[in-house]
Design a protein around this nucleic acid. Structure first.
Lengths: 130, 130
DNA sequence: CTTGACCTTGCCATCATGGGAAGGTGTAGC
DNA sequence: GCTACACCTTCCCATGATGGCAAGGTCAAG
């Protein structure tokens, strides 16, 4: 199938498919006589893999590593778990940080009467009057 | 004071100070006879404002708007509240999405024995066998 | 043949931050 | 006065993932 069909079937935009190929994440597919890319079922599996991994927030680098492991029948699940574990930990840290920010913001918004008056606890907080 | 001192006093890198000036977020400061930038106390307040707003995750665009409001003694706190409220809502959505991803990942990592064997629920999930 | 969808490659942009290059300035120490 | 080092200037490029647009070619239905 052509790139547009592969895009629809995988949820990855044609643009990104080409991009992933350009950065080596995907192998260049077969080409037709018209130079159009031709994707096979196996290619589709990889595209779906990438789409799912992206959805889980893995970076392209991580996805590349995961793909290599997926392609390698002799992989050890420990390697996969290590990548996922690292990613999970980073994610948890980001969530915690954002949660902290949310709490601060939430409090500031709550304290702001939001009317015509110029006094504003949000701006005060940002200004950190010293 | 020079940019290095302003950087230390505000927590904003010299690079970013120049950058903020280049994008119009900060007004060009006075210059010495040697063409060095000279920052006054007022400039420092603005830098600290930006640093704090960045820490709260506001975008440069939002910070520009907040700075304008801060500079305007006639502002209405409602305007500030609106910006902060929008930002808070977006933040909450991002947190929720990341939390969902975290739960999925956490479960996958938990189910993975992480040993020498090749079978791996993480890769299986990514592959979405159909 | 025409038209519109699809395909190709290439260049640029987004957003916030930062590295490095090339060249100038200031000051302490010798 | 010279040297060395820290600091300053502007400029160009990069990051990471995604996407717009341009220019030109291909395909197939009407």
């Amino acid at each position: 199938m052509n790139i547009g069909e592969a895009s629809k079937a995988s949820g990855v935009s044609a643009k990104m498919i080409r991009h992933y190929e350009s950065i080596g994440l995907l192998r260049p597919p077969a080409r037709g006589s018209n130079d159009y890319r031709l994707y096979a079922e196996r290619d589709l599996h990889e595209l779906r893999f990438i789409a799912r991994a992206r959805a889980l927030g893995f970076s392209m680098k991580e996805i590349g590593e995961l793909l290599s492991l997926w392609r390698n029948r002799r992989r050890a699940s420990a390697q996969v778990r290590a990548i996922a574990g690292t990613h999970l930990k980073a994610l948890e840290q980001r969530i915690a940080m954002m949660e902290s920010v949310r709490a601060t913001l939430s409090e500031l918004v709550r304290c702001c009467h939001g009317d015509d008056r110029p006094d504003c606890p949000i701006l005060d907080d940002l200004t950190l009057q010293r």
